[in-house]
Design a protein around this nucleic acid. Structure first.
Lengths: 253, 253
DNA sequence: TAGTGGTCTAGACCACGTC
DNA sequence: ACGTGGTCTAGACCACTAC
Protein backbone atom coordinates (compact mmCIF):
# COMPACT_ATOMS: atom_id res chain seq x y z
CA UNK A 1 0.00 0.00 0.00
CA UNK A 2 2.83 2.34 0.77
CA UNK A 3 5.85 3.11 -1.35
CA UNK A 4 9.16 1.79 -0.09
CA UNK A 5 10.80 3.84 2.58
CA UNK A 6 14.46 4.74 2.42
CA UNK A 7 14.14 6.10 -1.09
CA UNK A 8 14.98 9.79 -1.27
CA UNK A 9 12.25 10.54 -3.80
CA UNK A 10 8.66 9.58 -3.92
CA UNK A 11 8.72 8.35 -7.51
CA UNK A 12 11.70 6.11 -6.76
CA UNK A 13 9.82 4.59 -3.87
CA UNK A 14 6.76 3.97 -6.02
CA UNK A 15 8.91 2.49 -8.78
CA UNK A 16 10.69 0.27 -6.28
CA UNK A 17 7.45 -1.01 -4.83
CA UNK A 18 5.92 -1.64 -8.24
CA UNK A 19 9.10 -3.42 -9.37
CA UNK A 20 8.81 -5.83 -6.46
CA UNK A 21 5.15 -6.44 -7.17
CA UNK A 22 5.86 -7.11 -10.84
CA UNK A 23 8.68 -9.53 -10.03
CA UNK A 24 6.47 -11.23 -7.48
CA UNK A 25 4.07 -11.93 -10.33
CA UNK A 26 1.21 -9.87 -8.99
CA UNK A 27 0.10 -8.81 -12.48
CA UNK A 28 0.59 -12.17 -14.20
CA UNK A 29 -3.04 -12.50 -15.14
CA UNK A 30 -4.32 -12.90 -18.69
CA UNK A 31 -3.63 -9.36 -19.83
CA UNK A 32 -0.65 -8.71 -17.55
CA UNK A 33 -2.06 -5.23 -16.99
CA UNK A 34 -1.17 -2.80 -14.23
CA UNK A 35 -3.69 -0.54 -12.48
CA UNK A 36 -4.31 2.74 -14.27
CA UNK A 37 -2.20 5.78 -13.53
CA UNK A 38 -5.08 7.37 -11.66
CA UNK A 39 -5.66 4.30 -9.52
CA UNK A 40 -1.95 4.14 -8.72
CA UNK A 41 -1.97 7.82 -7.85
CA UNK A 42 -4.78 7.13 -5.39
CA UNK A 43 -3.06 4.10 -3.93
CA UNK A 44 0.26 5.84 -3.40
CA UNK A 45 -1.33 9.20 -2.56
CA UNK A 46 0.62 10.89 -5.33
CA UNK A 47 -0.26 12.94 -8.37
CA UNK A 48 -0.61 11.39 -11.81
CA UNK A 49 2.59 13.12 -12.91
CA UNK A 50 4.59 11.54 -10.11
CA UNK A 51 3.17 8.10 -10.87
CA UNK A 52 4.10 8.62 -14.51
CA UNK A 53 7.65 9.39 -13.48
CA UNK A 54 7.77 6.12 -11.53
CA UNK A 55 6.31 4.18 -14.45
CA UNK A 56 8.92 5.79 -16.70
CA UNK A 57 11.68 4.27 -14.58
CA UNK A 58 10.22 0.79 -15.00
CA UNK A 59 9.63 1.32 -18.70
CA UNK A 60 13.28 2.32 -19.03
CA UNK A 61 14.24 -0.94 -17.39
CA UNK A 62 12.17 -2.83 -19.94
CA UNK A 63 9.81 -4.18 -17.29
CA UNK A 64 6.61 -2.56 -18.55
CA UNK A 65 5.23 -0.91 -21.65
CA UNK A 66 2.30 1.37 -22.32
CA UNK A 67 -0.44 1.22 -24.93
CA UNK A 68 -2.32 4.48 -25.36
CA UNK A 69 -5.98 4.31 -24.59
CA UNK A 70 -5.43 0.91 -23.09
CA UNK A 71 -3.01 0.85 -20.17
CA UNK A 72 0.35 -0.27 -18.82
CA UNK A 73 1.38 -3.90 -19.24
CA UNK A 74 4.14 -6.15 -18.02
CA UNK A 75 6.60 -6.51 -20.89
CA UNK A 76 8.46 -9.54 -22.11
CA UNK A 77 11.85 -9.65 -23.77
CA UNK A 78 11.79 -11.86 -26.86
CA UNK A 79 14.84 -10.69 -28.76
CA UNK A 80 15.60 -11.20 -32.39
CA UNK A 81 18.94 -12.96 -32.45
CA UNK A 82 21.18 -11.56 -35.11
CA UNK A 83 24.46 -13.32 -35.73
CA UNK A 84 27.01 -11.52 -37.86
CA UNK A 85 28.42 -14.84 -39.10
CA UNK A 86 25.36 -16.97 -39.56
CA UNK A 87 26.96 -19.61 -41.71
CA UNK A 88 30.15 -19.90 -39.73
CA UNK A 89 28.35 -20.03 -36.46
CA UNK A 90 26.32 -23.05 -37.47
CA UNK A 91 29.24 -25.19 -38.62
CA UNK A 92 32.43 -24.01 -37.06
CA UNK A 93 31.53 -22.52 -33.74
CA UNK A 94 29.33 -25.24 -32.42
CA UNK A 95 26.49 -24.99 -30.01
CA UNK A 96 25.40 -22.15 -27.79
CA UNK A 97 26.96 -22.12 -24.35
CA UNK A 98 26.24 -18.50 -23.58
CA UNK A 99 24.64 -16.73 -20.70
CA UNK A 100 21.75 -15.61 -22.84
CA UNK A 101 20.58 -18.94 -24.05
CA UNK A 102 17.60 -17.60 -25.91
CA UNK A 103 15.60 -19.53 -28.41
CA UNK A 104 17.15 -19.21 -31.80
CA UNK A 105 13.76 -18.92 -33.39
CA UNK A 106 13.19 -18.72 -37.11
CA UNK A 107 11.33 -15.45 -37.11
CA UNK A 108 12.60 -13.77 -40.19
CA UNK A 109 13.16 -10.13 -40.92
CA UNK A 110 10.73 -9.12 -43.66
CA UNK A 111 11.02 -6.05 -45.81
CA UNK A 112 8.12 -3.65 -45.27
CA UNK A 113 6.72 -2.20 -48.45
CA UNK A 114 8.86 -1.27 -51.42
CA UNK A 115 12.53 -0.55 -51.14
CA UNK A 116 13.05 3.08 -52.08
CA UNK A 117 15.92 3.41 -54.55
CA UNK A 118 17.43 6.63 -55.81
CA UNK A 119 20.62 7.93 -57.33
CA UNK A 120 21.95 10.80 -55.23
CA UNK A 121 24.99 12.90 -54.55
CA UNK A 122 26.78 11.25 -51.69
CA UNK A 123 26.42 12.80 -48.24
CA UNK A 124 29.67 13.69 -46.57
CA UNK A 125 29.94 10.84 -44.09
CA UNK A 126 29.00 8.25 -46.71
CA UNK A 127 31.58 9.64 -49.12
CA UNK A 128 34.24 9.35 -46.44
CA UNK A 129 33.30 5.77 -45.69
CA UNK A 130 33.34 4.88 -49.40
CA UNK A 131 36.62 6.76 -49.86
CA UNK A 132 35.04 8.85 -52.61
CA UNK A 133 34.68 12.55 -53.29
CA UNK A 134 31.84 14.31 -51.59
CA UNK A 135 28.81 14.43 -53.84
CA UNK A 136 30.01 11.46 -55.89
CA UNK A 137 27.08 9.60 -57.38
CA UNK A 138 25.81 6.77 -55.19
CA UNK A 139 22.72 4.63 -55.11
CA UNK A 140 20.72 4.90 -51.94
CA UNK A 141 18.54 1.94 -51.01
CA UNK A 142 16.20 2.61 -48.12
CA UNK A 143 13.94 0.08 -46.44
CA UNK A 144 12.31 -0.94 -43.23
CA UNK A 145 12.19 -4.43 -41.79
CA UNK A 146 9.52 -6.05 -39.65
CA UNK A 147 9.15 -9.16 -37.55
CA UNK A 148 5.70 -10.56 -36.90
CA UNK A 149 4.30 -7.48 -38.59
CA UNK A 150 6.05 -5.08 -36.25
CA UNK A 151 8.65 -2.68 -37.55
CA UNK A 152 11.98 -3.28 -35.85
CA UNK A 153 14.66 -1.80 -38.09
CA UNK A 154 15.47 0.79 -40.73
CA UNK A 155 18.35 0.17 -43.12
CA UNK A 156 19.85 2.58 -45.60
CA UNK A 157 22.45 1.23 -47.99
CA UNK A 158 24.80 3.20 -50.23
CA UNK A 159 26.57 1.73 -53.27
CA UNK A 160 28.83 3.69 -55.66
CA UNK A 161 27.24 4.22 -59.06
CA UNK A 162 30.25 2.90 -60.93
CA UNK A 163 29.76 -0.49 -59.29
CA UNK A 164 25.99 -0.60 -59.50
CA UNK A 165 24.95 1.22 -62.63
CA UNK A 166 24.34 -1.80 -64.85
CA UNK A 167 23.01 -4.15 -62.20
CA UNK A 168 19.64 -4.68 -60.56
CA UNK A 169 20.95 -2.79 -57.56
CA UNK A 170 19.35 0.19 -59.27
CA UNK A 171 15.94 -1.45 -59.07
CA UNK A 172 13.64 -1.71 -56.08
CA UNK A 173 13.76 -5.49 -56.31
CA UNK A 174 17.45 -6.25 -56.59
CA UNK A 175 16.79 -9.93 -57.22
CA UNK A 176 17.66 -13.15 -55.38
CA UNK A 177 20.48 -12.79 -52.86
CA UNK A 178 20.13 -9.04 -52.82
CA UNK A 179 22.74 -6.37 -53.26
CA UNK A 180 25.70 -8.52 -52.23
CA UNK A 181 24.83 -11.19 -54.79
CA UNK A 182 24.66 -8.56 -57.54
CA UNK A 183 27.99 -7.12 -56.46
CA UNK A 184 29.52 -10.58 -56.49
CA UNK A 185 28.28 -11.23 -60.02
CA UNK A 186 29.85 -7.97 -61.12
CA UNK A 187 33.18 -9.00 -59.61
CA UNK A 188 32.91 -6.81 -56.52
CA UNK A 189 31.87 -9.42 -53.99
CA UNK A 190 32.62 -8.39 -50.41
CA UNK A 191 35.13 -10.56 -48.59
CA UNK A 192 35.14 -8.80 -45.26
CA UNK A 193 33.00 -6.51 -43.21
CA UNK A 194 33.43 -3.96 -40.49
CA UNK A 195 30.56 -3.17 -38.18
CA UNK A 196 30.46 -0.24 -35.83
CA UNK A 197 27.86 -0.06 -33.11
CA UNK A 198 26.63 2.60 -30.83
CA UNK A 199 23.63 2.73 -28.59
CA UNK A 200 21.60 5.83 -27.87
CA UNK A 201 18.02 6.95 -27.34
CA UNK A 202 15.75 7.43 -30.30
CA UNK A 203 15.15 10.78 -31.96
CA UNK A 204 11.51 11.82 -32.39
CA UNK A 205 11.79 11.04 -36.10
CA UNK A 206 12.91 7.51 -35.28
CA UNK A 207 10.14 7.18 -32.72
CA UNK A 208 7.64 7.81 -35.50
CA UNK A 209 9.47 5.75 -38.10
CA UNK A 210 9.94 2.63 -35.98
CA UNK A 211 6.80 3.12 -33.84
CA UNK A 212 8.87 3.30 -30.68
CA UNK A 213 7.99 4.59 -27.26
CA UNK A 214 9.46 7.97 -26.48
CA UNK A 215 12.82 7.57 -24.80
CA UNK A 216 13.34 4.08 -26.17
CA UNK A 217 16.91 3.05 -26.95
CA UNK A 218 18.10 2.24 -30.45
CA UNK A 219 21.21 0.61 -31.80
CA UNK A 220 22.86 2.52 -34.60
CA UNK A 221 24.96 0.18 -36.64
CA UNK A 222 27.22 1.03 -39.56
CA UNK A 223 28.54 -1.71 -41.80
CA UNK A 224 31.22 -1.36 -44.44
CA UNK A 225 31.59 -4.16 -46.99
CA UNK A 226 35.02 -4.55 -48.57
CA UNK A 227 36.06 -6.47 -51.67
CA UNK A 228 39.36 -8.32 -51.96
CA UNK A 229 41.48 -5.32 -52.86
CA UNK A 230 40.16 -3.41 -49.86
CA UNK A 231 37.81 -1.03 -51.65
CA UNK A 232 34.62 -0.35 -49.73
CA UNK A 233 31.80 -1.40 -52.07
CA UNK A 234 28.87 -0.66 -49.80
CA UNK A 235 28.06 1.09 -46.57
CA UNK A 236 24.91 0.35 -44.67
CA UNK A 237 23.48 2.47 -41.90
CA UNK A 238 20.97 0.64 -39.74
CA UNK A 239 18.82 1.79 -36.86
CA UNK A 240 17.47 -1.04 -34.72
CA UNK A 241 14.84 -1.07 -32.04
CA UNK A 242 17.25 -1.98 -29.24
CA UNK A 243 14.59 -3.72 -27.19
CA UNK A 244 14.09 -6.28 -29.95
CA UNK A 245 17.61 -7.39 -30.73
CA UNK A 246 20.36 -9.52 -29.33
CA UNK A 247 23.50 -9.16 -31.43
CA UNK A 248 26.01 -11.98 -31.58
CA UNK A 249 29.60 -11.91 -32.79
CA UNK A 250 31.94 -14.87 -33.02
CA UNK A 251 35.61 -14.31 -33.66
CA UNK A 252 38.98 -15.99 -33.23
CA UNK A 253 41.55 -15.02 -30.66
CA UNK B 1 11.23 33.02 -30.61
CA UNK B 2 8.45 30.59 -31.37
CA UNK B 3 8.60 26.82 -31.34
CA UNK B 4 8.41 25.13 -34.69
CA UNK B 5 4.97 24.82 -36.16
CA UNK B 6 3.78 21.59 -37.68
CA UNK B 7 4.71 19.64 -34.57
CA UNK B 8 1.71 18.01 -32.94
CA UNK B 9 2.94 18.72 -29.41
CA UNK B 10 4.35 21.79 -27.83
CA UNK B 11 7.35 20.06 -26.27
CA UNK B 12 8.27 18.54 -29.62
CA UNK B 13 8.18 21.97 -31.18
CA UNK B 14 10.39 23.40 -28.47
CA UNK B 15 12.79 20.47 -28.77
CA UNK B 16 12.90 20.87 -32.51
CA UNK B 17 13.65 24.58 -32.30
CA UNK B 18 16.31 24.10 -29.65
CA UNK B 19 17.88 21.29 -31.70
CA UNK B 20 18.22 23.62 -34.66
CA UNK B 21 19.72 26.34 -32.52
CA UNK B 22 22.21 23.91 -30.99
CA UNK B 23 23.26 22.59 -34.38
CA UNK B 24 23.55 26.15 -35.67
CA UNK B 25 26.10 26.68 -32.92
CA UNK B 26 24.14 29.29 -31.03
CA UNK B 27 25.43 28.06 -27.67
CA UNK B 28 29.04 27.46 -28.69
CA UNK B 29 30.43 29.96 -26.24
CA UNK B 30 32.96 29.15 -23.54
CA UNK B 31 30.61 27.23 -21.27
CA UNK B 32 28.31 25.89 -24.00
CA UNK B 33 25.41 26.60 -21.67
CA UNK B 34 21.74 26.85 -22.59
CA UNK B 35 19.32 29.35 -21.04
CA UNK B 36 17.76 28.19 -17.78
CA UNK B 37 14.56 26.21 -17.78
CA UNK B 38 12.65 29.23 -16.47
CA UNK B 39 14.03 31.52 -19.15
CA UNK B 40 13.14 28.96 -21.81
CA UNK B 41 9.66 28.66 -20.35
CA UNK B 42 9.26 32.41 -20.68
CA UNK B 43 10.61 32.49 -24.21
CA UNK B 44 8.41 29.66 -25.46
CA UNK B 45 5.46 30.67 -23.27
CA UNK B 46 5.35 27.23 -21.72
CA UNK B 47 5.53 25.85 -18.21
CA UNK B 48 8.78 24.61 -16.70
CA UNK B 49 7.51 21.03 -16.87
CA UNK B 50 6.89 21.29 -20.59
CA UNK B 51 10.33 22.79 -21.17
CA UNK B 52 11.82 19.94 -19.15
CA UNK B 53 10.04 17.46 -21.38
CA UNK B 54 11.59 19.13 -24.42
CA UNK B 55 15.04 19.15 -22.83
CA UNK B 56 14.59 15.47 -22.01
CA UNK B 57 14.17 14.71 -25.71
CA UNK B 58 17.45 16.42 -26.53
CA UNK B 59 19.21 14.76 -23.61
CA UNK B 60 17.97 11.40 -24.90
CA UNK B 61 19.52 12.23 -28.24
CA UNK B 62 22.81 12.91 -26.53
CA UNK B 63 22.82 16.57 -27.57
CA UNK B 64 22.73 18.14 -24.11
CA UNK B 65 23.38 17.22 -20.51
CA UNK B 66 22.38 18.74 -17.21
CA UNK B 67 24.38 19.57 -14.10
CA UNK B 68 22.28 20.17 -11.02
CA UNK B 69 22.53 23.61 -9.56
CA UNK B 70 24.38 24.72 -12.64
CA UNK B 71 22.43 24.35 -15.85
CA UNK B 72 22.04 22.58 -19.20
CA UNK B 73 25.04 22.31 -21.47
CA UNK B 74 25.74 21.23 -25.02
CA UNK B 75 27.23 17.74 -24.87
CA UNK B 76 29.97 16.25 -26.93
CA UNK B 77 30.29 12.65 -28.05
CA UNK B 78 33.85 11.40 -27.61
CA UNK B 79 33.39 7.66 -27.71
CA UNK B 80 35.82 5.07 -26.48
CA UNK B 81 36.52 2.91 -29.50
CA UNK B 82 36.61 -0.73 -28.61
CA UNK B 83 37.65 -3.18 -31.27
CA UNK B 84 37.01 -6.82 -30.59
CA UNK B 85 39.99 -7.80 -32.72
CA UNK B 86 42.50 -5.17 -31.74
CA UNK B 87 45.53 -7.04 -32.96
CA UNK B 88 44.01 -8.35 -36.16
CA UNK B 89 42.44 -5.07 -37.06
CA UNK B 90 45.77 -3.27 -36.93
CA UNK B 91 47.61 -5.60 -39.28
CA UNK B 92 45.14 -7.48 -41.37
CA UNK B 93 42.20 -5.24 -41.88
CA UNK B 94 44.00 -2.08 -42.84
CA UNK B 95 42.85 1.45 -42.40
CA UNK B 96 39.54 2.82 -41.27
CA UNK B 97 37.16 3.85 -44.01
CA UNK B 98 34.01 3.90 -41.95
CA UNK B 99 31.20 6.35 -41.50
CA UNK B 100 32.20 7.04 -37.94
CA UNK B 101 35.75 8.07 -38.52
CA UNK B 102 36.43 8.94 -34.93
CA UNK B 103 39.81 9.48 -33.44
CA UNK B 104 41.28 6.19 -32.39
CA UNK B 105 42.71 7.79 -29.32
CA UNK B 106 44.93 6.03 -26.87
CA UNK B 107 42.79 6.71 -23.85
CA UNK B 108 43.07 3.50 -21.93
CA UNK B 109 40.60 1.73 -19.76
CA UNK B 110 41.95 1.76 -16.23
CA UNK B 111 40.86 -0.50 -13.45
CA UNK B 112 39.26 1.41 -10.59
CA UNK B 113 40.36 0.25 -7.17
CA UNK B 114 41.01 -3.35 -6.33
CA UNK B 115 39.57 -6.23 -8.28
CA UNK B 116 37.24 -8.13 -5.95
CA UNK B 117 37.92 -11.85 -6.18
CA UNK B 118 35.92 -14.59 -4.55
CA UNK B 119 35.22 -18.28 -4.90
CA UNK B 120 31.48 -18.83 -5.15
CA UNK B 121 28.84 -21.32 -6.12
CA UNK B 122 28.01 -20.63 -9.73
CA UNK B 123 24.79 -18.74 -10.46
CA UNK B 124 22.44 -20.51 -12.83
CA UNK B 125 23.07 -18.52 -15.99
CA UNK B 126 26.83 -18.65 -15.51
CA UNK B 127 26.72 -22.39 -14.96
CA UNK B 128 24.77 -22.81 -18.18
CA UNK B 129 27.28 -20.73 -20.12
CA UNK B 130 30.20 -22.68 -18.64
CA UNK B 131 28.39 -25.97 -19.28
CA UNK B 132 28.76 -26.90 -15.61
CA UNK B 133 26.41 -27.97 -12.88
CA UNK B 134 24.59 -25.26 -11.04
CA UNK B 135 26.49 -24.26 -7.92
CA UNK B 136 29.78 -25.61 -9.26
CA UNK B 137 32.70 -23.71 -7.80
CA UNK B 138 33.78 -20.73 -9.88
CA UNK B 139 35.99 -17.73 -9.30
CA UNK B 140 34.23 -14.41 -9.63
CA UNK B 141 36.35 -11.42 -10.54
CA UNK B 142 34.56 -8.11 -10.29
CA UNK B 143 35.92 -4.71 -11.27
CA UNK B 144 35.08 -1.32 -12.63
CA UNK B 145 36.92 0.53 -15.37
CA UNK B 146 37.40 4.25 -15.88
CA UNK B 147 38.60 6.55 -18.61
CA UNK B 148 39.98 9.94 -17.70
CA UNK B 149 38.92 9.24 -14.15
CA UNK B 150 35.29 8.65 -15.06
CA UNK B 151 33.71 5.27 -14.51
CA UNK B 152 32.48 3.84 -17.79
CA UNK B 153 32.16 0.09 -17.33
CA UNK B 154 31.61 -2.74 -14.87
CA UNK B 155 32.94 -6.20 -15.69
CA UNK B 156 32.32 -9.44 -13.87
CA UNK B 157 34.29 -12.49 -14.95
CA UNK B 158 33.68 -16.12 -14.00
CA UNK B 159 36.31 -18.88 -14.30
CA UNK B 160 35.82 -22.51 -13.25
CA UNK B 161 37.80 -23.41 -10.14
CA UNK B 162 39.34 -26.49 -11.74
CA UNK B 163 41.06 -24.26 -14.31
CA UNK B 164 42.02 -21.45 -11.98
CA UNK B 165 42.75 -22.95 -8.59
CA UNK B 166 46.53 -22.99 -8.80
CA UNK B 167 46.99 -19.78 -10.80
CA UNK B 168 47.07 -16.11 -9.95
CA UNK B 169 43.51 -15.86 -11.26
CA UNK B 170 42.60 -16.43 -7.62
CA UNK B 171 44.41 -13.23 -6.62
CA UNK B 172 43.25 -9.66 -6.98
CA UNK B 173 46.25 -8.88 -9.17
CA UNK B 174 46.27 -11.69 -11.69
CA UNK B 175 49.61 -10.59 -13.12
CA UNK B 176 50.79 -9.37 -16.53
CA UNK B 177 48.43 -10.16 -19.38
CA UNK B 178 45.60 -10.84 -16.99
CA UNK B 179 43.29 -13.81 -16.78
CA UNK B 180 43.72 -14.93 -20.37
CA UNK B 181 47.51 -15.05 -20.03
CA UNK B 182 47.19 -17.21 -16.91
CA UNK B 183 44.75 -19.52 -18.66
CA UNK B 184 47.13 -19.82 -21.60
CA UNK B 185 50.02 -20.75 -19.32
CA UNK B 186 47.86 -23.45 -17.78
CA UNK B 187 47.07 -24.87 -21.20
CA UNK B 188 43.57 -23.44 -21.41
CA UNK B 189 44.24 -20.47 -23.67
CA UNK B 190 41.12 -19.24 -25.44
CA UNK B 191 41.16 -19.56 -29.21
CA UNK B 192 37.78 -18.07 -29.96
CA UNK B 193 35.20 -15.82 -28.44
CA UNK B 194 31.51 -15.24 -28.65
CA UNK B 195 30.08 -11.88 -27.71
CA UNK B 196 26.42 -11.19 -27.18
CA UNK B 197 25.16 -7.64 -27.00
CA UNK B 198 21.98 -6.03 -25.94
CA UNK B 199 21.14 -2.44 -25.27
CA UNK B 200 18.72 -1.22 -22.65
CA UNK B 201 18.25 1.58 -20.15
CA UNK B 202 20.09 1.48 -16.85
CA UNK B 203 18.58 0.15 -13.66
CA UNK B 204 18.77 2.45 -10.62
CA UNK B 205 21.55 0.24 -9.21
CA UNK B 206 23.58 0.74 -12.39
CA UNK B 207 22.87 4.46 -12.29
CA UNK B 208 24.55 4.60 -8.89
CA UNK B 209 27.34 2.19 -9.79
CA UNK B 210 28.39 3.85 -13.02
CA UNK B 211 27.38 7.40 -12.05
CA UNK B 212 24.90 7.60 -14.92
CA UNK B 213 22.05 9.98 -15.51
CA UNK B 214 18.65 8.48 -14.87
CA UNK B 215 17.30 6.94 -18.06
CA UNK B 216 20.71 6.60 -19.63
CA UNK B 217 21.26 3.64 -21.95
CA UNK B 218 23.74 0.88 -21.20
CA UNK B 219 25.18 -1.91 -23.29
CA UNK B 220 25.08 -5.31 -21.64
CA UNK B 221 27.69 -7.54 -23.18
CA UNK B 222 28.36 -11.20 -22.47
CA UNK B 223 31.54 -12.82 -23.67
CA UNK B 224 32.37 -16.50 -23.68
CA UNK B 225 35.99 -17.55 -24.18
CA UNK B 226 36.56 -21.03 -25.62
CA UNK B 227 39.71 -23.11 -25.73
CA UNK B 228 40.65 -25.33 -28.64
CA UNK B 229 38.46 -28.30 -27.68
CA UNK B 230 35.44 -26.03 -27.38
CA UNK B 231 35.18 -25.87 -23.60
CA UNK B 232 34.15 -22.48 -22.32
CA UNK B 233 36.93 -21.40 -19.95
CA UNK B 234 35.58 -18.00 -18.97
CA UNK B 235 32.44 -15.96 -19.20
CA UNK B 236 32.44 -12.22 -18.73
CA UNK B 237 29.42 -10.03 -18.13
CA UNK B 238 30.00 -6.37 -18.83
CA UNK B 239 27.81 -3.32 -18.41
CA UNK B 240 28.97 -0.32 -20.42
CA UNK B 241 27.90 3.30 -20.29
CA UNK B 242 26.45 3.31 -23.80
CA UNK B 243 27.10 6.99 -24.34
CA UNK B 244 30.84 6.43 -24.02
CA UNK B 245 31.45 3.52 -26.37
CA UNK B 246 31.70 2.77 -30.03
CA UNK B 247 32.05 -0.96 -30.58
CA UNK B 248 33.80 -2.28 -33.66
CA UNK B 249 33.74 -5.76 -35.15
CA UNK B 250 35.66 -6.94 -38.18
CA UNK B 251 34.86 -10.27 -39.75
CA UNK B 252 35.23 -12.16 -43.01
CA UNK B 253 32.41 -12.85 -45.44
C1' DT C 1 22.33 34.78 -1.49
C1' DA C 2 20.58 34.14 -5.78
C1' DG C 3 19.98 31.03 -9.50
C1' DT C 4 19.76 26.32 -11.08
C1' DG C 5 17.96 21.63 -11.99
C1' DG C 6 14.84 18.22 -9.78
C1' DT C 7 10.61 16.96 -7.60
C1' DC C 8 5.71 17.36 -6.71
C1' DT C 9 0.84 18.88 -6.77
C1' DA C 10 -4.08 19.32 -8.28
C1' DG C 11 -6.18 20.34 -11.50
C1' DA C 12 -7.36 20.38 -17.00
C1' DC C 13 -7.97 18.82 -21.84
C1' DC C 14 -6.96 15.69 -25.80
C1' DA C 15 -6.71 11.51 -28.81
C1' DC C 16 -7.25 6.96 -28.73
C1' DG C 17 -9.10 1.98 -27.49
C1' DT C 18 -12.56 -0.78 -25.77
C1' DC C 19 -17.02 -1.82 -25.18
C1' DA D 1 -19.67 6.61 -23.55
C1' DC D 2 -16.13 5.77 -20.72
C1' DG D 3 -11.51 4.82 -19.31
C1' DT D 4 -6.83 5.12 -20.78
C1' DG D 5 -2.21 7.15 -21.54
C1' DG D 6 -0.26 11.66 -23.03
C1' DT D 7 0.21 16.55 -22.70
C1' DC D 8 0.10 20.93 -20.26
C1' DT D 9 -0.38 24.52 -16.65
C1' DA D 10 0.88 27.57 -12.70
C1' DG D 11 2.22 27.29 -8.98
C1' DA D 12 5.44 25.29 -4.86
C1' DC D 13 9.52 23.57 -2.33
C1' DC D 14 14.12 21.29 -2.08
C1' DA D 15 19.16 20.52 -2.71
C1' DC D 16 22.84 21.96 -4.95
C1' DT D 17 26.24 25.34 -7.25
C1' DA D 18 28.38 29.50 -7.99
C1' DC D 19 29.43 33.81 -6.45
Amino acid sequence: MSPKSGEPHKYRGIASDLRDRIKAGEFESEKRQLPSERKLADRYTASQMTVRQALGVLRDEGLIESRVGSGWFVAEWRPIVRNALERLSATQWGEGRSMWDVDIDDRRLEVVGRTEVELINSPEDVARALDMDVAARVWKRNRRYAVDGEIVMRATSYIPDDLAHDTRITESDSGPGGTYARLREAGHGPVRFREQLRCRLATPAEVDDLRLAAGAPVIEQHRSAMRADGRVVEVNRMVLDASRFLLVYDFPA
